[in-house]
Design a protein around this nucleic acid. Sequence first.
DNA 1: ATGTAGAGGCTTTTT
DNA 2: GCCTCTACAT
Length: 1084
Amino acid sequence: MEFIADFHIHSHFSIATSRELDPEHLDYWGRIKGIKVVGTGDFTHPGWLAELKEKCEPAEAGLLRLKPEYRVNDDGCPSETADNSVRFILSAEISTIYKKGDKVRKVHHVILAPDFETVEKIQQSLSRIGNITSDGRPILGLDSRHLLEIALEASERIFFIPAHIWTPWFSALGDKSGFDTIDDCYDDLASHIHAVETGLSSDPPMNWRCSFLDKYTIISNSDAHSPQKLGREANLFNTELSYSAITDALASGDARQFLGTVEFFPQEGKYHHDGHRKCNISWDPLETARYDSMCPVCGKKVTVGVMNRVMQLADRNEPEKRGNRSPFYSMIPLKEVLSEILKVGPNSKKVTREYHDLIRKAGSEFNVLLHLPLGQIHQVGGEVLAEAIRRMRAGDVHIKEGFDGEFGVIKVFTEDELKKIGGQSFLFDSLFSADSGKKEAKIIEVDQKAKKKTKESVIPFRPEHKKSMSENPLENLNSAQHEAVEHGAGPALIIAGPGTGKTHVLTCRVYNLIHHKNISPDKILAVTFTNKAAGAMRQRLQRMLAEKEQAEPVTISTFHALGYHMLKEQRGRGAGLFEKDSEPVIIDPEDKKQILLKEIGCDKKQFSGVSEAITQAKQNLLGPEKVEDKFVAVFYQKYQDYLSEHHLLDLDDLIFQPVRLLRSDPAILSHYRRQFAWIMVDEYQDVNFAQYQLIRTLMPDVHANLCVIGDPNQAIYGFRGADVRFINQFIRDYPGSRVYKLQTSYRCSDNILQASGQVVAVEESEPASMLQGVQEGVKIQISVHPTDKSEAEFVARTIERMMGGLRFFSMDSDISTGEGTDQEHGFSDFAVLCRVHSQIPALEKAFRDHSIPWQEVKNQSFFKQKTVCDILDILQLTVNPENSYLAQKIKNIKIFNDTKFRKLKKLLEKPQLVKQSLGTIIDVCYSNNEREDSEFLFKELFRHSEDFGDDIQGFLKFVMLGTSIDTYRSDTEQVSLMTLHGAKGLEFNCVFIVGCEDGLLPYSLYQDRRCDRDEERRLLYVGMTRARRFLYLTHAKKRFLQGRHYTLARSPFLETIEKELIETSQSQYQKRTKKPADRQPTLF
DNA sequence: ATGTAGAGGCTTTTT
DNA sequence: GCCTCTACAT
C-alpha cells in the first residue's frame, strides 16, 4: 500500500517541546495530516518508553498502534478508519558531542528500532555513558562511530540515519562541527549507513550535487517539536506495513517501494543563504565567493549558510546526473497557505477554523496538498485555494531566501494579487492567468577555487604529526630546556614549573644519554610516582628512538614498582626476605586493615592510630624494634611477623624493605650501584624520607649522575609523608650540582602564571612567579554566588555557553548566542576542581539538569570495588595457589568455594590471555542472573586487561599498584570533576575551582585537625596552573556540606592576587524555568 | 544470628 | 545528609 511516514519527531520528554506530544495526540494529528507511520521519537527516554508500552499495542510486525481506549476524537479530526489509522515505529534522536582530529564534533543521529527489547538494550548501554533521563534527546560525549556500534550491538536490525546532515552546528556534514563525508563520521562502520536525512534546510537537488551521497537514500522528516508540525517533511512509501518492509525500502531506495519525499522549500530555512542580518546582506554562495566572504557594510566575515556548505562539498553541477533520484514534492504547510490567503497569522482562530473545515471535507492535509484533484479542491476550499495549491504543486512560488538567522519567506501570491483577493472569500472569479512566470531553478556553478581554499583551511593543525621519527627531537627545545637536556655527568636539579615541558625534558635527557653520550640504556633508571607518568615517558622515548627496542633496557618505573622489582630479583637469587620459590604478594590497605583487626587482634578504636604509626615507622625506615611507643611496637612486630610468614608485602614495604636490603648486603648494594649508574627522579618535591634514602643509598657520591626534577610549589602530599625539604636541600646533599630552571610555560597564560605565583609566594620579598607564559590570556574570573547550588549552576551554564550551545533550545535562549568563544571547546576541555569530594554532588546535579556529560575521578579505584576485588583475588590465588593468606581470604568470598577453585585451576592451567582467564573466572563463579548486575564492571575489567596480553603477573601488578587516575579517561568527551589533588599532572583549556572559601581553602572546617596553610596555598597553585586559558574561581556565601550549613568568607588566598589580573562578578543566575513551547525555534 | 534506633563521625591519598 | 558503628532488642 502507499503511505506517508515521518520518523523523526520528539516527545513531551524533550526539552522545549509541546506538552501535547503524547501517543494520543500523535495518533490524532497523524490522522489529520494523513501520516500512516509516525516515529515515536525519544525511545532512549525510560519515561517515554513506559508511556508507549502502556498506551500502545503491537500492530503489524515491528509497528505499534494506539490502544483504542486512548483514542481522541472530536470534530476537528476525521474519526478512525482502516485507511487513516496511525502506526508508530520506534525511533529516537541522539546528539553526540566529542572531539576528533582537534575539532569539536556535534552530530545528531536518528535511530529506528524493531522492538522494545532492542530499545532497552540501547538504553542500558547509553545510560552508562551519559544521562538519558533528563532529555528525550540525550546529549552524549560519544564518538558517532561508537554510538553506531552500540546500536548495532543491540540489534543488527536497527536503522541508523545521520540527522539533518547540513545543519551547521549539529550534523554529520555541518559546517561548524561536522565532517566532509559521511564515511569520516562513522569510520569503519560507515557501511551500515544507508540513508541520510536532509533536514528542513536542504532539498534533494542540493544533495544530488554531492556524488559521495549517491549511495544513500535521501529521506526527510519533520523533527517536530509539537504535533501540529508533524509531517512538515515526510517520506512516501509503497510497501506492506511492517518494520522490515519500511527499513528495506529505506536501505535500497528502490523506486517501486520508496516513492520519494515531501519537502519544505529549503529557502525558508534560517541559514539558507550567506549574509549578515544586521547589514541586510543576503548572498548566494557565488556572490559570497565574489566578495571573498567579506560584508561590504561592516567589513566582517558573513555568516555562511547551508547552501554554501553544500557547494563546498559538491562535485557536480548538474544534480540530475545522480542516478537514483527519488521524486520529491515541495510543499507549504496548509495552514501557511490559508494564512497567506486570509491575511491573518497561521495560528489564528480564523485559519484554524478553515483548516479543520477543510480536513473534514478532504480527509487529511496531505490529501489536499498532494493528491486531491484541483477541481475537488475548488469545490471544498474555493478557487483561490485551488490556485494556491496548483502553484505550489508546480513550484510556481515567490521565494525570499533565509540568511543569518532570518527565516526565508515563500509566498504563493504577489502583493497585488492578494490585494485583489482581499482576504474575504474563496469564491472569486478567475483572477489568475496560468503562466505567472515559473521561476527557473537556479543552478549555481561550483567555484572550484573557492572550494579548494576552504578544504585546505579545514585541515587541522596537529603539532605531533609535524615531528617525524628521523628528526632530531632536541631541536625543538628552548635554550633552558636544551641546557638541562645536555647536562652530562654529575648531579643536577631541574626546577620545572607547570607546563614547562618537564616530562619532555626528562625524556629528551634519556634520549640524549643514549643517543649522543653513548650511555648503555640498561644503566639508566628513571623513577616516577605514577604508573601513568612512567607509561607516558616510555611511550615518548619509544617514539624518539629510531628503533623502539632501544628503549626496552631503560628502567622506567615508579618508586614502588622499582622496590618490588628489586625484592623479587633478589629473592630469585636467594637473598632478601623470602625463600626462593615463594612469590611475594602485595596487599592493599584493606588487607592491612583486616590483618591488623582479625589476625593481630588490634582493637577497632586503636586501629587507625596503629596503622598510621606503622606506616610512619616504615616511611622513616624504622623496624618494630626501633619504635618507642611500646604499644604500637607490639602490634607492629606481630603484623610484620604475620606478613613475612605469609609472604606478603604492604605498600610501605615496597620502599622500606629494599632500603634495608641494600643497607644490609654490600653485594646487593654494589650490584645496583653498578646497574643504575644514571638515575633520574621525577616529582622530586614529593619524595618521602624512605624514598629519599633509597636514592641516597643508591647514589651517595656527591658527584653522582643523579638528575632530579620537580617544583617545590607543587608539593601537596605533605600529609602523606612527602617532604619538600628534600628538594630544597638537594644542592647541599650534592654540593657539586648544577641547577636548571625551566621558566617558560607552554601551558598557562601569563595572567594565570602571575596570579598563581602571587598565591603561592608566602614571603613578601619572594619574587612572584618567575614563569613566563606564551600568551597573555584573558583575565581570571572570580565570582561570588549565593549558595553552592547557584555556584554549580553557574559552572554548568558557563560550560554550556562556552561550548557554543548544546542544543537548539539554548541557542535561541539567552544562555548562548551560538557564537561561543573564539575557540572551539569540547567537554574534555573543562575541569571542575574542588577541595573535598563532598562538594561534587551539587555539581553533578547541575550537570544532569543541563545534560552535560561528566566523569568523576573517584577516590576509590575501579579495582577496589567489591565485585572486581573478588575476581582479582581469585585470579591472584590461581597464580599463587601456595599463598596461605590468599587461600584464607578467598574463603570469605561468597561466590567462591573449593569445588569452583579446583574447576578453575584446571581451566586456567594453560597459559592464556588475561582477558580469557578473567572470563573463565566469571563464568565459573557467577550464575547468569548474578552476572547481569555487574556486566558493565566485567566489560570494564576486560578492557583494562587487554593491554596485558597473557601477562597475568603484569596485570596484577598494575591492579595492585594502580589508582583511580590510571583508569581516568582523558579521551572521552566529558567534563572532568575531581579534587585538586586528583588534578595534578593534568591540564585543561578551562578550569573552574569551586569553593574558594576560608574553611575549604585552606581546609579548616574541623579545627582540631591542624592544616598546613602553605600546603593549601600550593594546592590552589596546582589547581590554577591546570588551566591553559580560562580560569574561574568561585565561592559561595552559603554552603551546604555534610549536612550542615556554613557561611564562609572568601578564601584569603584570593586576596593575594593583584586586582589587574582578575575580573569579579556576582552570580546572575536564577533558577532555570522551562520556556513556553511557543518560543521554540521553528526551523529545526 | 539479625534488625534497628540513635549517636557520632566526617580532608586531601601519586603507590 | 549519609554512612558506620554500637547497643540493645528480637
